[in-house]
């Protein structure tokens, strides 16, 4: 089976974010293996694509406070979170200017 190789949710996240925010930098890390045995995931069908860590650098965040930026991402990934079993999304949301000042990668 090639099933273990496919990453449909990660791919969907990348596609959606690229389309919506046209990021100058995007990193998507899958942390699911670290959380696969957590109590919160007991009985979950999706344990391979449940926890993600995203760094998004985009002009779309300019002039917006952190909660507003995170909400933009959550809204975009609503389906993944509510229906596809994405349990946690860690977010770094920066504008290109902020990124230049503090260019830490993940």
């Amino acid at each position: 089976m090639i099933r273990s190789m496919s990453k449909p949710i990660e791919q969907a996240i990348k596609t959606k974010i690229t389309g919506a925010f046209q990021p100058v930098h995007l990193a998507v890390k899958n942390d699911s293996s670290k959380h696969a045995h957590h109590a919160g995931l007991r009985g979950a069908t999706n344990v391979t694509e449940s926890h993600f860590r995203l760094t998004i650098v985009s002009d779309a965040f300019a002039g917006k406070a952190l909660p507003a930026r995170h909400r933009m991402v959550y809204t975009l990934l609503d389906e993944e979170i509510k229906e596809k079993g994405v349990h946690a999304v860690q977010l770094k949301t920066k504008t290109p200017t902020e990124w230049e000042k503090d260019p830490k990668d993940l």
């Binding site: 909660p67 979170i81 946690a88």
Partner: peptide, 18 residues
């Protein structure tokens, strides 16, 4: 806000862990 934890300070939503 779709995730937990959520912090409020003086009735205002502040955000989650990140």
């Amino acid at each position: 806000w779709p995730t937990i934890p959520q912090l409020y300070v003086d009735k205002e939503f502040v955000g989650g862990c990140d």
